[in-house]
Design a protein around this nucleic acid. Sequence first.
DNA 1: ATCAACATGAGTTTTTAT
DNA 2: ATAAAAACTCATGTTGAT
Length: 465
Amino acid sequence: MPDNKYSNKSLEKEEKLWLLVGMGYTAEEALTAMDKCGPDTQIAELTDFIYAAELEKELDVCIRELPDEEDEKSYSHPRNLEFLSNKKRKLYKDEKQGSRGLWRSSKKQECGTERRIYIPNPMIGFCDPDESWPIVERKLPEAAKRLPYFYYENVALTPQGVWSKISRFLYDIEPEFVDSVYFCACARKRGYIHNLPIHNRFPLTPRPPRTIQEAIPWTKKWWPSWDGRTTLDCIHTKSGSAKLAERIRQALEEYDGEPEPPRHVQTYVLAECRKWNLVWVGRNKVAPIEPNEMEMLMGFPRNHTRGGGVCNGDRYTALGNSFQVDTVAYHLSVLKEQFPNGINVLSLFSGIGGAEVALHRLGIPLKNVVSVEISEVNRNIVRGWWKETNQCGNLIEIADVQEVTWDKLEQYVSSFGGFDLLIGGSPCNNLSGRNRVSRVGLEGEHSSLFYEYFRILDLVKCIMG
DNA sequence: ATCAACATGAGTTTTTAT
DNA sequence: ATAAAAACTCATGTTGAT
């Protein structure tokens, strides 16, 4: 019986080894890395180490083959070689900065085993939100059917190979890519990996507005005819500057006497409005949407993130990082008839409680919710909501995913009989297109916390049998 | 097939204000 | 000192033309 597999220190090593082998490394590579890096090294660091070793081996091959190599496009082109050397140096100097892009592209040709993930267009997911029946039949792998229900989320448009890797970890389940613009008035292109049934889904009611004009009607008065937007782009964590709004106002005022500004001014203004999700709040006046409006668009109750010492900057950050509630609730709606007496939830990277709010709005009673969230401000928001909505169940708060250990989980499972749903989206900082500085992929400083999601899912699976 | 032009991001770093 | 505002950014996929 593998009951105590994780409970003592010497066997933690076995878990890490198993994890790394699951990631596609050889046992030899994994053992060497664990040997050299020490027993307390995190998975992301170990993968970086293996990557660096791999790269060095590749480099040696390149250098040896250089005299014969004439092809300009080859990796042994002097410029690329210089790049590789820099990269290698950088990796050894700063192990956090590991980017696997090059490794993937050169490796792919070699073995060609990486399953390609196709992102659908339109990004509608498995079901049309106006129907309860799937538009595609999906075959869930057998292993995935034996797990507790889980739901994982991240940005859809990642660097290459990220989703195929996430999918490989999460039991080869095909991601469901959905743009929340089919549920509300703002875009939100996200991928979801889950083992929930997909028949008999239903949307939250009332259905949220689907256009800017319905969602923020008072902007209609000032909306110029040449701004054809009917929906907003993705809501993110920062808002446009007042200086920009001022520049736009000045650019437009020059043409006040004319029916509309010239083409090039329209193009400039529209590009900035799209980039920063600006709306029309007065004559020639644009402004970023406000936190209350973001709450409404994202499906949260009014003032969900307001008050209790939460400043505006925190509200923008928290809301920009959150689930779109209607979208997630549509996927979770299938749980309602299965759990009429309520569910136990393990919520990782909870943020402002998008999952909890979605379940609550579906009318699914929350029995025990273990909520893991690093930000104190966000934990306060969730706790405030929990009290305000008079929840009958227990809310257990944990600050750091690393504190979620075998012992703690086993204790929860024995006290309330197991988790019915594990839900969460791991950080996308190193995956998002907004990031021009450290979009280094899944192994990045923040995004590698995905492996914590996987670790905890795997623990829950083992504990619950 | 190939290519350029275009659309689109749950961001990070530096400077300024309080 | 900390918080807000402003400045600074590019990989990736689509489209439509040769």
